[in-house]
Every structure is written in structure tokens, then in C-alpha cells.
Computed example of a mutant assay.
Amino acid sequence: MTQSPVRGHALVTGASSGIGAAIAREYAARGMPLVLVARRAERLQALAAELSARVECVVIAADLADPATPARLFEATTSRGLFISTLVNNAGYGVPGRYLSADWKTHADFIQVLMTSVAELTHRYLPAMEAAGHGRILNVASLAGLVPATAGHTLYGATKLWLVRFSESLDLEMKKHGVHVTAVCPGMTYTEFHDVNGMREKVSQLPKGIWLTSAEVAKLAVDAVEAGRPRLITGRTNRLLAALSKYLPDHLASALISSRSKDFRDAD
């Protein structure tokens, strides 16, 4: 088994499918032992069985919508004597439709998973990285956080913009301690995300050239955090969209995104 040049384990949330599973596979290919976290224990066990020939895999089934989960995760890894040298905050999903189409508990769970748990897990695992003088934190954000807002999925872009800013600020604080923090901002990626939020039929009509596979995103993301890049936008088309959003007048950029938002957002 190839030994990783990076000390410790990589803890990946949302590892049961999509980009999270792809990032786990990418780290396993680089010889890094893993802590796999998600709600679906069966899928985690299947992924661990796939990767255990290469690296050690610890499986922890947990729901990050539960506010007690980050502390339990930290205790579970600490009690095993594991040093989490890489933290991948990937767990996430979308809440389709208008803001008022879902009850507050749905939105509160969403904020807990995509924001609060990220902040808490980072706060808990960061001190050991700082003390060791080495660490990597990879936060899976989205192109949605870098382009103008659209109707529907109201909290999604807002949380992803928060994640980008959080990552950039933390990277500035921690780089002198040997800790790299990166926000990866994928655009359209072949995963189960659009099946879960009911948008598969609509997004399947988008041009094939704007899509990347989850494996492609994972490799780019891991390369970026190892290189110390605080932000990565995956794909040439996505970088163009982000640039247009930044440099076009606000009203033009907003009109451009809003005119096509029905292709990837459900606002009904």
C-alpha cells in the first residue's frame, strides 16, 4: 500500500455519493487514510469496501442536520486517536422552490448542514492542524455563490457565498501555520444532486459542454488545496460566467442569469 506524504486522515462529509465519494476516491488513490461520514450507512460501507484495499477507511454514519453531530464526530475520531489532517466539508443539498414553500424546520436543517456544522467542525479540528503545522480544509461551495441571485432555492447561493468568504478569510489566518483552506466552486456536475432536488429533467437539457464529472471536480479540488489556492472555479465555462458576473454591470449580470435560471432553478 502506498503511504501518503500527508500525515493523518482525511475526514469527508457527505461521502456516500457524488463529489464527496469522488473526493474520497481521489484521496485513497493518493494513499491517504479516510474517515467517511454521511447519513446512509449502507453506501458508506460499500465505498469503504471499495477503497479499503488501498487505505484504511473508518465509517461513521451521522446526520449533520442534528446540532449534536459535530461534537459527536470529533469525539468519535479523538477517542480512536485519529489526527484529522484534512477536513472536507462537502455535505449538502438543495431545497427547491420558493422560500415560503418549505417550513422553517426544513430551512433550519439546511442552514445547520451547510453552514453551522461546517463552522463547528472546522473550529474543532483546526487546533490540532495548527499545532502540527500542517493541515488542509477543503470546502465544497458552488458557482451559485459567485453569480447573481435567482428566484428559487433561496438559501443555496447565499450559503455558498458565505462558504467562499469563510474559506478565504480562514486561509489568510492559517497559511502561516501551514494550513491551506480552499473553497471549490463547481458548476454543473454529474451527481445525484439534481435527482434529489427534482431538477434532473430540466438540467439535462443544458449543453453537455458545461458539465464535469465528479471525478474531474475531485481531482481539481484536491490539487487546489494542496497547492494552497484559496478559491477554485472548476471548468472554463464556469470561470467565464463568474467573470461576467463580476465585471458586467450588476443589472446586466442579474438579467443574464435570471433569464436562464428556469433551466437550473425551481422557483414554483
Results as ranks from 00 to 15, higher is better:
residue 86 T to L: 07
residue 246 K to N: 12
residue 196 V to A: 11
residue 240 L to C: 14
residue 17 S to I: 07
residue 105 K to W: 04
residue 91 A to Q: 01
residue 180 H to P: 01
residue 98 R to I: 08
residue 237 T to I: 14
residue 198 G to P: 11
residue 163 L to D: 05
residue 54 R to C: 10
residue 254 S to F: 07
residue 119 A to T: 15
residue 122 T to L: 00
residue 244 L to I: 11
residue 186 P to G: 06
residue 192 E to R: 07
residue 43 R to K: 15
residue 256 L to K: 12
residue 30 R to V: 09
residue 100 L to K: 09
residue 228 G to N: 05
residue 184 V to Q: 02
residue 221 A to T: 02
residue 218 A to M: 13
residue 89 N to K: 08
residue 159 T to M: 13
residue 65 A to P: 09
residue 118 V to A: 12
residue 7 R to S: 13
residue 1 M to S: 10
residue 77 T to I: 00
residue 252 L to T: 03
residue 81 G to V: 05
residue 207 P to F: 07
residue 266 D to H: 11
residue 151 A to V: 09
residue 108 A to K: 10
residue 108 A to Y: 10
residue 244 L to G: 03
residue 101 S to M: 08
residue 70 P to R: 03
residue 70 P to A: 10
residue 62 A to S: 13
residue 162 W to K: 03
residue 157 G to Y: 01
residue 242 A to R: 04
residue 145 G to L: 12
residue 256 L to Q: 12
residue 15 A to Y: 06
residue 188 M to N: 05
residue 112 Q to M: 07
residue 167 S to N: 11
residue 74 F to K: 07
residue 267 A to F: 08
residue 128 A to G: 05
residue 119 A to K: 13
residue 199 M to R: 15
residue 90 N to M: 03
residue 256 L to S: 07
residue 18 G to I: 00
residue 132 A to M: 06
residue 149 A to G: 13
residue 70 P to W: 06
residue 129 M to F: 00
residue 95 V to A: 04
residue 44 L to F: 14
residue 265 R to W: 02
residue 24 A to R: 02
residue 22 A to P: 06
residue 66 D to W: 05
residue 207 P to S: 13
residue 88 V to S: 02
residue 5 P to M: 07
residue 266 D to Y: 07
residue 98 R to M: 03
residue 131 A to R: 02
residue 56 E to T: 15
residue 111 I to C: 11
residue 5 P to G: 04
residue 45 Q to K: 15
residue 156 Y to Q: 01
residue 124 R to S: 12
residue 68 A to S: 09
residue 43 R to S: 12
residue 104 W to N: 10
residue 150 T to H: 04
residue 38 A to R: 06
residue 203 V to C: 06
residue 212 L to Q: 14
residue 37 V to F: 08
